[in-house]
Design a protein around this nucleic acid. Sequence first.
RNA 1: GCGGAUGUGGUGGAAUUGGUAGACACGCCAGACUUAGGAUCUGGUGCCGCAAGGUGUGGGGGUUCGAGUCCCUUCAUCCGCACCA
Length: 931
Amino acid sequence: MGRYLKQLQIMSTYDFGRIEKKWQEVWQNTGIYRVSNASDRPKYYILDMFPYPSGSGLHVGHPLGYIASDIYARYKRLKGFNVLHPMGYDAFGLPAEQYALDHKVHPAVSTEANIRTFRSQLDNIGFCYDWDREIRTCEPQYYKWTQWIFLQLFDSWYNIHTDRAERIAGLVDILATEGNINHPSPGLKDLTVTAAEWNSWSETRQREVLMSYRLAYLDYADVWWCEALGTVLANDEVVNGVSERGGHPVVRRQLRQWFLRITAYADRLLAGLEQVAFSESLKEMQRNWIGKSFGAEIDFAIEGHDTPLRVYTTRPDTIFGVDFMVVAPEHEIVARITPDTHREAVEAYLAYTQSRSELERMSEKKISGCFTGAYAINPFDGRRIPIWVAEYVLAGYGTGAIMAVPCGDERDFAFARHFDISITNILGDLYDGTAANPTKDGVLSNSGFITGVPMSAAILQVIEAIEARGIGRRQTNYRMRDAGFSRQRYWGEPFPIVYRQDVPYALDESQLPLELPVVDSYSQGPDGQGPLANLTHWTHLPDGTIRETNTMPGYAGSSWYFLRYMDPHNTEAFCSREASDYWGQVDLYIGGTEHAVGHLLYSRMWTKVLYDLGYIGFEEPYKKLVNQGKIGGDSRLIYRVRGTQTYVSAGLREAYETDELHVDVNLVNGVELDTAAFRKSREDYAQAEFILEDGVYRCGTRLEKMGKRYLNAVNPDAVVAQYGADTFRMYEMFLGPVEADKPWDMQGIEGVHRFLRKLWRLFMDERTGPRWTDDAPTASELRTLHKTLRKVEEDTERFSFNTCVSAFMVCVNELTEQDCHKRAVLEPVLVALCPFAPFIAEELWAQLGHTDSVLVQPFPAWDPALIEEDSVEYPVQINGKVRAKISLPRAADNAAVEAAVLAHATVQQWMEGKPPKKVIVVPGKIVNIVV
RNA sequence: GCGGAUGUGGUGGAAUUGGUAGACACGCCAGACUUAGGAUCUGGUGCCGCAAGGUGUGGGGGUUCGAGUCCCUUCAUCCGCACCA
């Protein structure tokens, strides 16, 4: 590295602009943040959720988590850890492609431009990322390995006996020797194949069956199709019946799609939650998403038909309370069991349900349904049970059919009431006839052989009974579906798959990466295919095979990126086993809750697959997760008098008929609009007139999401330009706990800035220059120092950065008060401060005459003996009220403290001569006297 | 509806295992310096009260010598899921 700092100018005033520019260059030139995989220090891996480089850049809400992780990473380094703290870009995805469609710019070009903006914004804040390890999911060197992992998924199946993913070749051996008797297909539930049959099949037929086992598989399925985006979306990309991005309507559509068999991992994803430190609410979100439930599948015979109706229920104990059955409108049985007498009505109802969009279905949940005219038979008491079809039963869950128990289920109850179906009471007094009672704590009545049995026991008895009679079995169900993995888009990873006679084959590893070809047009291909389908020269290969034209979804690249950082330039493997063994799990992962069920579940699954296949040595990617809160925008509103170019100040708007408009917060100081800047900001504002109050234009305010559409996004660059990165960093931390949501509010930033200037003045007199001395510190100064070091260390460890900032403020206040300018005190403070405010710490460190960096010093040790004072001021409570404060030697034992306190004049006065009933002495803390 | 979380001054927020509630900062008030200040510095600032003192962590109840912290109950707000049988 040579000399760390070539020349040093004495700087008397705190010129943060010069300081920050200078040190950014020094840090970059010396590569101080470079991290090696070869180190004898203990490792620590701290990861930020990498950003999607959108066109609007970062606003002050984004860096909150990055600042916290940066502080922690720097702190861990001071503490002697080899810290991996990388950054990259989640660069494939829809918005870049939409932008390409609108502006005819290749997504790679706009993405590159956006990344440059992000990088410069990040650099401005002074992060300690090792940029040598930067990754971009859209680059072939990276997505080569995304494709490679896809091939591993394609070449694997889930063995339910060993409870892990295994190679397809092993499954082929099993099928060839014993058939699938021990390994039923998860995709083709009814498939039975003997070894002899298997061996006699054609390759095409065999591969078709293998497909139903693979972890990445092709299937026809109902998927969410978004017409506006021209693509299929995953469940978590659909919110309230519209697309998460853009809010476009979605419909169900049958398409041949790639899927990831994440359901095979449902139990392990659930169990893994016990081992990781995620917030309880986030774990709960994942549990709800996985949605595991226990119950039974029961076959009900249908009058006049051979095949029974299979239902799923979590409450088999309520089988004597079944008053009707309901099947989903899409259920194939409807057409078969409906007699001619009811056919017209049923078909009308089915037409009605099909006409309703998913959005309508979700927003207006009205009770609807239609009797099919068919009857099922209760297997235990032989009752005839009418079979209805209704849209409140979902085709995709369980068997798509339920047994309805109106006295025990609210929806069944409402349905029975609505259609005037009589209700059987099996709950005795627990059911009052006005509402269903879904309790599981009770005793059944009117229930045949389980009358008088507690419900929890009856569940098992009924399951045993149906299993004995061969009409059902216990069954675990999951709400989670396999994840759709195909997108009919351009800007994503191409699948390393070709079709021969419509049968998919994997590309050979040596053919990776399969690069994304350049296209002229980003518009859709034929038949709901993506833009790649237009490139026939690319899709149709000389050997007659045809390429897959879909691309992978956005979450593909982000499902394993944390592994690539460990070994980012490896051309032989996604990550060497050596590197992943060294770095291991991410010790701390920081990001927003928006990825609670998407990215976090997918990456957990991929990690488990790679673990099962022996590529890595751990199966949970993230040890600990911290969800940073969102910073809300503080919007500014202006009021335009309707039909004019006149704007009226907020306090006077009642007198006019106005339209409320958002105004760019950057044009407003507090609530005062800079009218001149406003006129210049947009052409149509040039002629604006203002009705002022007290000589100024006051804006209205509103707290809402921070973002471009509300014009309330504050660019960190602007804050850094005004106050410096150190102030910005510390202020974001000072705002409150990292996990909390909070509005952006510039009011308090002056306080933090003042603190840094005050710190500067401890070192420098703005007129006369350096003022530090080599004098020996006093006990009191040492106490301030060591108290601060302890507080900062403890609070940093527990991720409480707002209290750290306060501790530094107290420290500087106390040192200022004591007029302390001693190196022996100031230097350790700088070291402890440098994770929070690296620029000022580095500059002052250099000014003190050091030629190395403050960023690599060890965190100063603190000594408890120097913190504790010789005497303790005991608050003395008499009957719960503090009546006196008495200073006593710290060394005094309880008896001595008690004696001294009782002898004290003020205490005796308050006790009014009465003897104490009880005296409690908490050493070093408090004395409580009960009279 | 279900699940999770959170309620502390005018504001953002402190308060390790129950032990002086309101640290720190903003704002506000007063003062100093200044031609001036949206600069800087000093002091004050939970509420009621001149004071002594009282009171106070959404409300009510409980455990305890002692509760913001633990338990019960109730209210309010935020977030997530939402016909999942």
